[in-house]
Design a protein around this nucleic acid. Structure first.
Lengths: 72, 72
DNA sequence: AACATACTTATCATATATGATAAGTGCCGG
DNA sequence: CCGGCACTTATCATATATGATAAGTATGTT
């Protein structure tokens, strides 16, 4: 469950965002944050909470469960 | 993303635990917590972090993504 | 060279999750 | 009725996520 997991989750979020051609700026806008907080999340530099994951999932249109794909 | 979501996630955790015939006490043991913290999590009274979900998922042998089933 | 876009890094205050302890409820077997 | 088991509720200190701001990098365009 190390920080590897957080990195992997960040990468998964980034992939889902890029799949939909959304910029970090646009995502930040949709969730009502400032841009750096999106960057930090995708970089795996934060141990996000459920609510944070759900906001992002809602904004890009996926179930938050997908962020855990391949996370051990 | 209301607190409904947190409740649903708690219920999902409880279901997965019960499926495997594990008590809260046993789960607490496996993750190295005291019992009340498991109760609180399953009751949806906390906005858990990724690491918390991963610990529980590891202890009961599922991918943490399943905790988000049916969560909108 | 100046500018714009997309993103990263560092840092801060405030809110809150975590992990602990103590005390409670409900149920069942003896 | 009593002890034990499974779980809940309340509350605390400490660590840290969130949300904000300021300043940086990299790449491409005019």
């Amino acid at each position: 469950m190390s920080d590897e997991a957080l990195k992997k989750i960040g990468e998964n979020i980034r992939k889902e965002r890029e799949k939909r051609k959304i910029t970090q700026t646009e995502l930040a806008d949709r969730v009502g944050w400032d841009l750096p907080n999106v960057s930090r999340l995708e970089a795996g530099k934060t141990n996000a909470t459920v609510k944070t994951l759900l906001k992002v999932a809602g904004a890009i249109g996926v179930n938050a469960g997908v962020f855990f794909k391949g996370v051990k």
